[in-house]
Amino acid sequence: MTLTTTSFDWVRQLVHRESAIVLAPGKEYLVEARLLPIARSMGLPDVGQLVDSVRTRPSPESTRKIVEALTTNETSWFRDGDPFTALTSTVLPSLLSARGPAERLQIWSAACSSGQEPYTIAMLLEDAMPTASTRVAITATDLSREMVERTRAGRFSQLEVNRGLPAAMLVRHFTRAGTEWQVSPSLRRMVTVSECNLAAPLPRMGPFDVVYLRNVLIYFDLPTKQAILRRVRALMRPDGWLFLGAAETTLGVDDSWERVVIGRSSAYRPLKGN
């Protein structure tokens, strides 16, 4: 056991602050098991040193890794399903009628993690319109190279496909490959994956019609949140749509967005004149 009480308490407080999840005393073992791979990936011998390192030099990247390792077992496919329902019910029809038939819609999944979000979008689009693969391009980015590679591979474990992926979609869009499931070639062709740090100047991309930027802003301080929203808006079409996480908003952060309620979900659209 390398984890001191002080280190464990620091991790508990961090996780509680960022996710409202309470790690009960006695979960030292879980913290050790989940954080050891992160420590190793940073070249540190144990979790105690990982905690010391992040405490002395805090960074949103390591914070996010720690919180994610302790709060999410597997990412759900239709996690907070409403932003996806909004895509097919409202956003897609409105964009299709506003754009010419030859124009490709551009969708950005800005923190794609292991790929559930971009492939969820791709499946919904392919099911909603037969021409999806030629009419829509999905850009998926993540800070972590490992996540980028996982998304690109499009292979998911049994436990991952069990998390909120409708069985009908599983058998329609995936093929079993040993213990894993491989996403179909047509979906993979719709999704382009690359590394991207939202907290730094962004590469040339877009312009995007729809951006999914969910559960990212919570990890940053106010000035960084503002900078990220500004940079994202610069890559969006003036009539584009932005989806944030259920606990996130532009209100009180950046007043150049208009909040639009769609069903049980909200989207944000660039205000004109800003």
């Binding site: 879980l30 098991a33 077992n73 474990s157 436990l159 213990t179």
Partner: peptide
């Protein structure tokens, strides 16, 4: 090993 490991974590307990 990965099948057995996943079974244990999901069925027996996450730790």
């Amino acid at each position: 090993e990965s099948i057995a490991g996943e079974t244990w974590i999901a069925l027996v307990g996450e730790d």
